[in-house]
Simulated scan of single mutants.
Amino acid sequence: MRYLLFALLCLAGTAHAAPAKAYLTLIIDDLGQSPARDTRTLALPGPVTLAIMPDTPHATAFARQAHKAGKTVILHMPMDPATGPYAWHPDTPLPELEQRLGAALAKVPYASGINNHMGSRMTAQPLPMAWLMAELQRRHLFFVDSRTSAATVAAAKAQEQGLASLSRDVFLDDVRTPEAIAGQLRIAVELARRQGSAVLIGHPYPQTLEVLERELPRLKAQGIEWVEIHQMIALRSNQAMAAHGAGGRYRASAGGQ
């Protein structure tokens, strides 16, 4: 009986054990505005994904520079409440949304995918989000749901289409102090250990870059594998994490930051 209890305890421990490996992917948003900040971001060690805004003065030049440096480039697509010539709004007809998407992609050459800039209103719109995911599938691009709203349906629509996609787990720098940013990075590390992976989004603020320059080289010693975004897409296989859905399926409306 004693050995049976021991065996059951061992099995219970195994069932709740942390994943064997922990993976992390990092995206930096809002690039293309400042050559100094862009260059400093580009110099970060490892596979940083660079999300470039189309309506910035250096978008095209920086996309080419980043691609030449071997980095993954994505389009940081403005969505309502963002404004500007490329921004998507709920009342905009689909042909105009298509034109704006094409124009934005032309401004950010070598983009492998897109993520939403802002978009708390737009990503809650089922019809245009479904159209977008079908169009990205046609263009062989992936999608990252930045999850700027609790009402987002973007990831759910991507999953319905079978589109290669990810959802953000942690924002690094809602609070722009080195202490808060370092704390968010620790949260991401613990989340990666608990669920096997974490997708982080940050911005090229001086405080964020300062923390990343110091902490990214230490990840491996903490047992964290920092991987390129395409590898993270393959690892997750379009499955939702527990915070975003149940049984690997995204909820049509889920919590965000």
Rank of each mutant, 00 (worst) to 15 (best):
I187M: 09
A111Q: 07
L42S: 01
A17P: 12
H76L: 02
A192Q: 05
T92D: 07
S165Y: 13
A246L: 11
A61M: 14
Y86K: 06
A151K: 12
V108E: 14
R40K: 14
G13H: 05
V175L: 01
A192L: 12
I229P: 07
M77I: 07
T39R: 14
M79R: 09
D38G: 04
R2E: 15
T72S: 08
G223P: 05
A155T: 03
L94Y: 10
F62T: 03
D38V: 13
Y110W: 13
I28Y: 02
R139D: 07
L172S: 00
T60W: 00
A151H: 13
Y86H: 15
L219S: 02
L50V: 09
K107L: 07
M122W: 15
D173Y: 06
A182I: 03
K68L: 14
H89I: 00
H244L: 12
S120L: 02
A134L: 09
T177D: 02
Q159P: 11
G202I: 00
G196K: 06
L200N: 02
A36W: 03
H203M: 00
G223M: 00
T177M: 00
P128V: 05
I224E: 08
M79F: 09
D145Y: 09
T39P: 03
M129K: 10
M129G: 09
M129L: 14
D169Y: 12
A188R: 02
Q125G: 12
D29W: 02
F142V: 06
R2D: 11
T72E: 03
P54I: 07
Q231N: 12
M133I: 04
A20M: 04
I181P: 01
F143H: 10
E215F: 04
A156M: 01
D169N: 14
S237Q: 14
V108H: 01
A59V: 01
T83K: 15
I114G: 07
A66Y: 14
D169C: 01
A252L: 15
Q239V: 11
S112W: 02
V73Q: 15
G46E: 08
P178L: 05
L127K: 13
I74D: 06
T25S: 15
T49I: 03
R64T: 04
H117A: 03
A59Q: 10
A66W: 13
T14C: 09
S112K: 15
M232F: 02
T56V: 07
R186L: 00
A61K: 06
E213A: 14
P45G: 10
E135C: 10
Q184S: 14
R64M: 02
L8F: 03
V153P: 01
